[in-house]
Design a protein around this nucleic acid. Sequence first.
DNA 1: CATGTTTGTAAGTGTGCACTCACAAACAAT
DNA 2: ATTGTTTGTGAGTGCACACTTACAAACATG
Lengths: 180, 180
Amino acid sequence: MRSTAEARRVTVLNAAVSAFARAGFHATPVTAVAAAAGISEAYVFRLFSGKLGLFVAAAGACFDRIAEAIEAGAERATGDSPEEILDAMGDAYAELIADRDLLLFQVQAQAVTDIPEIAEAVRAGYRQVATLVQSRAGAGDAQVQQFFAYGQLCHLIVTAGLEQVPEPWARALTAGIRHP
Amino acid sequence: MRSTAEARRVTVLNAAVSAFARAGFHATPVTAVAAAAGISEAYVFRLFSGKLGLFVAAAGACFDRIAEAIEAGAERATGDSPEEILDAMGDAYAELIADRDLLLFQVQAQAVTDIPEIAEAVRAGYRQVATLVQSRAGAGDAQVQQFFAYGQLCHLIVTAGLEQVPEPWARALTAGIRHP
DNA sequence: CATGTTTGTAAGTGTGCACTCACAAACAAT
DNA sequence: ATTGTTTGTGAGTGCACACTTACAAACATG
């Protein structure tokens, strides 16, 4: 008995977010997650209820990390106007997704929302983050909407690799976006 | 010999866009596409170079339809200021994605950009649409960027089913978005 | 009508993967 | 020590699916 089940679950979830982020739900065998976590495939199935349960739990971990980073970013805001807090939140988010795992996982999760359990997990994740942004920044609906619209644009820029494209249309889409 | 190969390819591509849109690249067996097109799986493999070739061709067809609709929308603009043309383009896009196939296909394609051929197809598609919007509307970079940012937000709203969510955070994200 | 070409399919083949089960070793409790 | 519980794995099982091949029927052309 090397570790408690709860500690293993955390390790596995980190490996799962990373693995699912790259290839998505259907193209990622749980063998890959197990290998990344350093345990056997069979034990992953005992720790989580099937591949679907694993993915849903990983989604929860993903959005928890995002909410945590955004809240910490708000704490570092220079002022307390909605604009300043939103800006600080944007910076924190840009910094967080530097490794791309959390960003890509969101894209992958959105792609498998035809599975009801995953759709619910995505809604729960955005509920958590959106209510946080709304209440913590004290921003109006339009500002919150804009915050998420440009966040989604960021997902497109990264998945399509637009920061590598020198043509004018790509420069227009990536202009001023923090950090890609 | 009922039909020419070229006519079959068109039929198959329509079926492919629809089928891939729902379940994505990896979860859609080419049997499903073949069945939807009313031909055998083996013939699909003769018409296209593997499942990947089929998906890439479907992506081309998808973005062609989008570009066509946006151009037709611009034609119907009430004035010829960038704002009015962009607005007409937005309406045309909102109308086009009413059946959700074209929207969901884009989301699915973004999720499998770890496959280089698909990443290139996505870039080619957005190049086509973005240059069209930029040149046809005569809009500045910031306006073009905003156009696509809110388009991407629209993808989130649909995949997560936010238009069905009555809570304040979801209302903020969906406010004023055309047609969901 | 004979020969060639294109359209179409039925029936495989091999492989990858989700999930299970029987079993073992580490630890706890009495 | 003995019994029970939790942590952990190796070795399967069965199925879905990408892709191939061999073959047949429709059409064209001389």
